[in-house]
């Protein structure tokens, strides 16, 4: 078991450094002749007007909130699914209640119009 995680550790290390090593190598072989025009934002088109980092629309935030609710559900769903065969009928009733509650939340968000993209 520990050996398995040694594999994961080494693999993660190599997978994380490998792309950057290739980028460093590319730095050695590629040309580099920057000029102000080339380095402007959106090189081949018109400069965009105004700041890019503006306040983004709240719509994305609402979807993120709904997402968090369902993502937390998954944290409960997976252990339940693994242990389900060993548990009695009670596990089914419990999860049905849990998913039912979530469904009510989804219906509420739906009726509130959060799921409509304006």
């Amino acid at each position: 078991m520990l050996n398995t995680y040694a594999v994961i550790g080494l693999y993660a290390l190599v997978a994380l450094t490998f792309p950057f090593i290739v980028l460093l190598f590319a730095r050695l072989v590629r040309p580099s002749k920057p000029n102000p025009l080339k380095n402007s934002t959106y090189e081949c088109g018109m400069e965009t007007i105004g700041d890019t980092w503006v306040q983004f629309r709240a719509q994305y935030y609402l979807f993120a909130l709904v997402f968090v609710v369902f993502d937390v559900e998954v944290v409960f769903l997976y252990p339940w699914a693994v242990a389900y065969g060993k548990l009695g009928l009670f596990a089914l009733v419990e999860m049905a209640l849990f998913i039912g509650l979530l469904a009510v939340a989804l219906v509420y968000a739906w009726r509130k119009g959060i799921l409509e993209w304006q």
Binding site: P19, V22, A26, P31
Partner: peptide
């Protein structure tokens, strides 16, 4: 690999350079 790599002047350099490697990782 041998093509010129352009970093825009306005870019936020740290995350700009980290993002491709992280995507592959």
């Amino acid at each position: 690999l041998t093509k010129e790599d352009i970093t825009p002047d306005n870019a936020e350099r740290l995350s700009y350079n980290l993002a491709p490697g992280l995507a592959v990782f």
